[in-house]
Design a protein around this nucleic acid. Structure first.
Lengths: 181, 181, 181, 181
DNA sequence: GATGAATGAGACTTCATTCAT
DNA sequence: AATGAATGAAGTCTCATTCAT
């Protein structure tokens, strides 16, 4: 409900009606409406982070580009498989209050750090051209996020073919960042 | 104030105190708190849209890439020159309610359409390689937006050198989408 | 209402109904139900303290015993003239919470100190026999308070003749503490 | 717990935690929180009343004054030996609700009646001077109560020497009410 | 007999909006 | 045109009590 209607538009009354429990029961399990939201958000953010790992460049590992493709595909299927999750962390939780913003911020920092590390590593291995990893990391994340928002909130991308979406994004990223040849 | 504290955290009491008028006076000029927010948002969105034009490819015009660079630079200076504006339309207005979301949505549609048109045009002129303009338009917008958020809300990019930021983003976009050579 | 029904039994709903104002109006004038109670109690305690002065023993002043009699009479008319006041500070505010208890305590300390000072002074002047002023002060205050409670809360003393009540109490106190003859 | 924190501040949750039983068990033994409080208060009031007897003036009995002294001493040691009891009936139960007030009232009526009877008897025997026994009974009880409150709740009488306290009070009472010599 | 999850009436408080002045 | 006291719907939270297990 938080995802669908937003935090403020969702009252405790709505929640308990949907859950089919009494008011008191709600407060038996959650300290406050805010605490429930925090719990939901934490859960969802954890679910996202679970699917994001650093690129494995050890000898014998899957080629980095394939790993990257798998990653992007996994992210892009989230709008379809877990639309609420996407709606929540890309949309509803934004600008809610300082505490939530801080949580979202630290989430992004971890994602950025992970991406940055992959970029730096890629550069060292000759897979990524020289670039400012801080800026490029944000740009890459932004690319994926905007497409996810279009799929989930805006619903203005009729295309649900995750593979094509991923390829398109990767072509953009590859052509730009990865050394061609 | 909406930008700094968010819609819900900003009360009519705060607004009239800041404005130095009485409660009744506020409602003389705005139908509701919501109406004020709408007005503010419209104004700010208009200010953003004003700086975004389609690429001019008529004979004798500035080279397309230079126009694009100017565009991106203009966007990337917004966080510094008008942080409130950026905060508002990239952050605070997000997920507020259906009406505002619709407004933000239509704003994005216009931006996407503009970008898409430039891409299609570029492809026709041989400046842009074949690609899905819908997806790539969103990705490009997302890149810029994420960097803007990092500059405004997150403040995790110490770099205030707009030109370098723009070059980095354009290199990413160019290398990937525009035909090199 | 606090005096008549007690703090907990008096809801904000009762108060605004009695006052004939809306809920919001109540909170326009008082921060909380508690704040109203504090205000009421302060006002009433101040009203009591106003009538209590130290005995004036300067040359030419009214005889000390007459002053005392006037004092006691003033106190004993309170149950009739301001029953709510008495009910409140002798009954309803007792044991309400720590903050209120502290307020009541400090009130009593001032009364005790005043009484004690009069006793010590009286002893110095030969009007009061040797005694422990701390204990006797409390005993004297207790005598008056209990009679007041009987008049206000218990209503088990049909006698509303303040002068007789005062005389009776003073006879008890005089005979005991003041030097006879 | 009622004595220490007050009726309203003591929740059923606190009680069952302290007792180490489940919620349901509590309601197996007491109809309600109120019923428990009533039971506790009754028990405590009974304990006080147990120590209060009418003066025995039969030939050969202990001198009346000695009996009185023993009585007052017994009362004044309560704050030390059973502070909770004193706190409860002199403080926490006051003004709680009509039913409790009625209980407290009837307790006081019995005490007053007992005291009154002793006074009347004393007068008949020439031990007590002529006085209004209703008023004086209340005053005497009030003296002792106030000192007890100072010892228990206010803790502003450092003196724990029960004998001295009793003597001081008796001197006051004797000098005033009892025929000297 | 004991349990404790569930209940829901009701308490306090907020704040966008109105309207008589 | 300006004011600001008054409004009241709606929100969050508490806690004594119940009842199926």
């Amino acid at each position: 409900m938080f995802a669908a209607r937003g935090y403020h538009a969702t009252g405790v009354a709505d929640i308990i009606e949907e859950a089919g429990v009494a008011r008191g029961t709600f407060y038996l399990y959650f300290e406050s409406k805010r605490a429930l939201f925090d719990a939901v958000l934490d859960e969802q953010l954890a679910a996202v982070e679970e699917g994001i790992h650093r690129v494995d460049v050890s000898p014998g590992a899957t080629p980095a580009l394939d790993q990257l493709r798998a990653h992007v595909r996994w992210l892009l299927q989230l709008p379809e498989t877990r639309p609420r999750l996407v709606q929540l962390f890309l949309w509803e939780a934004v600008g809610l209050d300082e505490k939530t913003d801080a949580k979202l911020d630290s989430f992004h920092q971890r994602i950025f750090a992970l991406t940055r590390r992959s970029l730096v590593l890629g550069t060292a291995l000759g897979l990524v051209r020289e670039c400012d990893p801080d800026i490029v990391a944000r740009a890459l994340v932004g690319m994926v996020k905007e497409v996810m928002v279009s799929l989930t909130v805006r619903k203005d991308l009729p295309e649900p073919d995750v593979d094509r979406l991923a390829d398109e994004i990767l072509d953009l990223a590859t052509g730009g960042v990865l050394r061609l040849e």
